[in-house]
Design a protein around this nucleic acid. Structure first.
Length: 99
DNA sequence: GGAATGACATTTA
DNA sequence: CTAAATGCCATTC
C-alpha cells in the first residue's frame, strides 16, 4: 500500500458536496506530508473513483487541478460548493471530517 | 544514493 | 491583512 493509495482511499470516502484540506488528509494519515498528498493527486491514476477536486488548501483557496483550476471550481460549484475568486465561500461548512 | 520537484503550510516582515 | 521566505514529505529523475 503506497502513500497514494491511502490518499485515494480517504478521498473516496468524501461524499458529494463535501471538501477537505490537504492538511486534514495528511493529518488523517498520521503524517505531515501535505506536499506528498498533492503529489499523489497529481499522479491520480483514477480520477473517476477519486474525487480529487474536493481537496483544497487549508486557507480555503482552491489550489490546483490536473484539468485546470477552472474546471475544479466548476465541478465543486456543481456539487453545491460556492466559490468566489478561486476561494471557497464558507468552506468550513463544507469541510468533511474523517473518522 | 543524491538532487530536484510539487495540486502545500507556517512563520516572519 | 498581504507578501515573501523557509520548511516539509514522499516520489521521481
Amino acid at each position: 500500500m503506497t502513500f497514494n493509495q491511502r490518499c485515494y482511499e480517504l478521498l473516496s470516502q468524501i461524499p458529494k458536496g463535501k471538501i477537505v484540506t490537504y492538511k486534514q488528509i495528511a493529518n488523517t494519515l498520521n503524517t505531515k506530508a501535505y506536499r506528498a498528498v498533492g503529489n499523489a493527486m497529481a499522479n491520480n491514476p483514477n480520477p473517476i473513483t477519486v474525487p480529487c477536486h474536493r481537496v483544497i488548501k487549508s486557507n480555503g483557496l482552491i489550489g490546483g487541478y490536473v484539468f485546470g483550476t477552472k474546471k475544479k471550481i466548476n465541478l465543486l460549484e456543481d456539487e453545491g460548493i460556492i466559490i468566489k475568486k478561486d476561494e471557497i465561500v464558507d468552506f468550513k461548512k463544507h469541510i468533511h471530517l474523517f473518522k
